[in-house]
Nucleic acid binder design. Structure first.
Lengths: 108, 108
DNA sequence: CCCCACTACTCGGTGATACCGTGTAGCAGT
DNA sequence: ACTGCTACACGGTATCACCGAGTAGTGGGG
């Protein structure tokens, strides 16, 4: 699949929120998870910028823990504001995708 | 529905392509059509920048025609490259929405 | 023992996109 | 003459995903 970057704007952050919401995890693992989910071209730098944004926006709780396989990891979990943001993301996504599907129907 | 602008990046241009593809039309009417389709906050300036971009990218055929109700209108129709771009847009959209739906499923 | 690979995070800068505000203009009705 | 609707163009802004380079910790092969 060719370049999805423009289409990912606004949705990739929501995907990261969803992953964090389902399990406390860290940046490197989130990137690998996105890759295996089909977001093949998403790179670590992108995920880390999103995580820093979430942290600055006070949507996550961060816990630093040592790793057996390298430098220490920063584990992320959603707080109340993060869960609200995640719910808002899914509401927007449902709205947008229904609008787009109806546009496609009306067009033919 | 609150702000969709980030999520519209990459998709709004595709919506405009779809509208042009189904009927030769002009900027002001495209904006009204988007509004009634549920893209309520999309403003004329946004649509015109997209149309100029399509024109510069050689994806459309442009015909200027006088109007009974105001200044002359620029009518847009897809050319071969535009139709290819539209098909590519739908392919990307299907890919992305299927990935996101599967992410949501796997999360719960 | 040293280099390499993998893991793990940070940061400055880039390009693309939707949006905002303003300006220009034609036409119709009061 | 004034207001409102139609119709388009343009400079500037914010946000986002991405890129590139840098910093580190761990373990294995030559």
């Amino acid at each position: 699949m060719d370049d999805l970057t423009e289409m990912l704007k606004g949705t990739l952050e929501g995907c990261v929120l969803e992953i964090i919401g389902s399990e406390e995890t860290y940046g490197y693992a989130i990137t690998r998870r996105l890759n295996e989910l089909g977001f093949a071209d998403v790179i670590e730098g992108t995920v880390y910028t999103i995580l820093l944004r979430l942290e600055r926006g006070d949507l996550v709780r961060v816990t630093k823990r040592p790793s057996e396989k390298g430098p220490p990891r920063k584990f992320y979990a959603l707080n109340a504001a993060g869960r609200a943001e995640l719910a808002a993301f899914w509401a927007k996504w449902e709205y947008l995708s229904s609008r787009i599907d109806s546009l496609r129907e009306s067009g033919k």
